[in-house]
Nucleic acid binder design. Structure first.
Lengths: 211, 211
DNA sequence: TCCTGACTGTACCAATCGTTCCATTCCGAC
DNA sequence: GTCGGAATGGAACGATTGGTACAGTCAGGA
């Protein structure tokens, strides 16, 4: 890998990035079937043939978009969640977590938008992109479950995992729902306030499930 | 309207129903753009021209589908929610409500599936179908808010409406999220258990918001 | 028997779909 | 300058898209 390939790759990567930028924008607006290669070409300024040079086919392109938007969202979430106040009580910790999720979703909404669309769109030939999202989603759920388990020190080991899993699944699903409601009416839906309520609600459920 | 028109209308209504049946099935699977007239024709067994005889265009067809699936779901929800146990405490009442919602969604999932897809799909030319769903959704929210207000007798009138609206918005959004998670993994997601948890959670939030 | 209006069947339209092909351009290495 | 691979440009492909036009079928009323 001399400097030659580096420069060439820089040029190629730049085009690839522009294609992905255009695609994520379109796909988050119009779903899988609504994302046409012609529109991607038009909005990225690159010819159709370039798209097929960088990606095998449409399915491959959409999968790449999911992957990249996931990583962008994940970085944003980690950035928002890293500044944790030490020695916080459970309610406070939950409030910080939900605030971080809300911030990451406001900043990088494309990943979840796209993932939800792929969740709902059940085409006969299952798209690679959908499978990718399902896998990522399961990882996130497993991560949240582990986090909750460490916060459940006072519960017997037997029921700890079950409670943690149930709470994590609920919290993730509820966060999805709040995001969706926000997509429906961004001007009137109080996303941040609802995420605060989510923290309160999970905290309360904690008591009721473990007593 | 003599017997002649009746018979003819019966025939026509039958065709119209078959078209709507096929469309709702396809649209709930593939979204707006994925719903092609050719596929609707094939699955309903009626020629394309009949579809255009019954509906002005694709947009009109989709709007009709939304409307009918909403009414079907609504009937199912009312049926599930009408058998309310008298003199139940708040927690019990909430559990009955969430159970009714869960049952209606399991029985008539198409309405919410379709509505969510239209919520996420933001095409430049806003479809009539989407506006219809937004309107229905606002009605449901208003209804839930009113119901909650009557259950908030112990709260001062000033904050009663605000609290009821916030709780109703949260409950609806969370229900959407649970439904979505179930769509993602119907085999592993415990929809009924999660809806029970939703009842518990809203009951707990009630105390914390009104104290 | 003929008329009428609801519905069906066929053919057609321009536009767009995803994809392929291939000639051309670009640019660093030699 | 020449070579080679990365990348672009443009044309073309067969299939499918939503939509229109129109003739034909059918049943019931006059």
């Amino acid at each position: 890998m001399g400097p030659r390939t580096e420069r060439r790759q820089q040029h190629g990567e730049e085009s690839r990035r522009r294609i992905l930028d255009a695609t994520v924008e379109i796909a988050a607006e119009r779903g899988y079937e609504g994302t046409s290669i012609a529109l991607v070409s038009e909005r990225s300024g690159l010819p159709r043939s370039s798209i097929y040079w960088h990606f095998r086919d449409k399915d491959d392109l959409l999968a790449a978009v999911i992957e990249r938007s996931y990583h962008l969202w994940r970085e944003r979430l980690i950035a928002a969640g890293s500044a944790r106040t030490p020695d916080l009580d459970r309610a406070g910790a939950l409030r910080e977590i939900t605030a971080a999720i809300a911030a990451s979703l406001l900043d990088q909404p494309e990943f979840l938008r796209l993932g939800m669309m792929l969740t709902l769109e059940r085409r006969p030939v299952e798209a690679k992109a959908r499978e990718l999202f399902v896998g990522i989603r399961n990882e996130v759920l497993a991560f949240a479950t582990r986090e909750f388990q460490t916060m459940l020190a006072d519960v017997s080991a037997a029921e700890r995992e079950a409670v943690a899993r149930k709470l994590a699944a609920f919290m993730l699903a509820a966060a999805d729902g709040l995001f969706l409601a926000y997509q429906l009416a961004p001007d009137t839906f109080d996303l941040l306030g609802q995420f605060e309520l989510l923290a309160i609600v999970v905290d309360a459920a904690w008591d009721r499930l473990t007593v």
